[in-house]
Simulated scan of single mutants.
Amino acid sequence: MTQIDTTFAKDWLADELADVLDEDYELEIEDATLSREIARIYKDKHPDSLDRRVYLSNLIHLQAELIKLQDWVVHTKQKIVVIFEGRDSAGKGGVIKRISQRLNPRVVRTVALPAPSDRERSQWYFQRYVPHLPAGGEIVLFDRSWYNRAGVERVMGFADEDQVEQFFNDAPEFERMLLRSGIILAKYWFSITDQEQQMRFLMRIHDPMKQWKLSPMDLQSRVRWEQYTKAKEEMFERTNIPEAPWYIVEGNDKKRARLNCIQHFLSLIPYQPVPHEEIRLPERVFNPDYERATLPPELYVPQKF
Rank of each mutant, 00 (worst) to 15 (best):
R222K: 14
R200Y: 05
Y247P: 02
E243M: 12
P245D: 11
A231K: 09
W246L: 08
R222C: 13
R200I: 03
Q211G: 10
A244D: 03
W212C: 00
T229W: 14
D207Y: 01
R238N: 03
K210Q: 02
R222V: 13
Q197L: 11
M209Q: 04
W246R: 11
M209T: 10
H206G: 04
Q197M: 10
M199H: 09
R224A: 14
T239Q: 00
Y228Q: 12
L202P: 00
M209C: 14
W212L: 02
M209S: 04
E226M: 05
W212H: 02
E237R: 13
H206E: 08
M209P: 06
I241W: 01
P245W: 07
K213G: 00
N240L: 03
L219N: 09
D218A: 03
P242H: 07
E237S: 13
M209N: 00
M203W: 01
F236C: 08
E237I: 14
T229H: 15
L219F: 13
Q211P: 08
Q197T: 12
L214P: 04
L214T: 13
S215Q: 11
A231F: 14
M235L: 09
R204M: 07
Q211I: 15
Q198T: 15
R200A: 09
R222E: 12
R222G: 02
K232I: 11
I241L: 11
R204H: 07
R224P: 04
K210G: 02
L202H: 06
F201A: 05
F236G: 01
R200F: 06
K210I: 00
F201Q: 01
Q227N: 11
E196I: 06
P245L: 08
R204C: 07
P216W: 08
E226A: 12
L202N: 01
Q198E: 11
E233Y: 03
E243R: 13
V223F: 13
I205C: 10
E233M: 12
Q198A: 14
W246N: 03
R238S: 01
E234H: 14
T229R: 15
E234N: 15
P216L: 07
K210W: 00
I241S: 01
Q220D: 05
E233K: 05
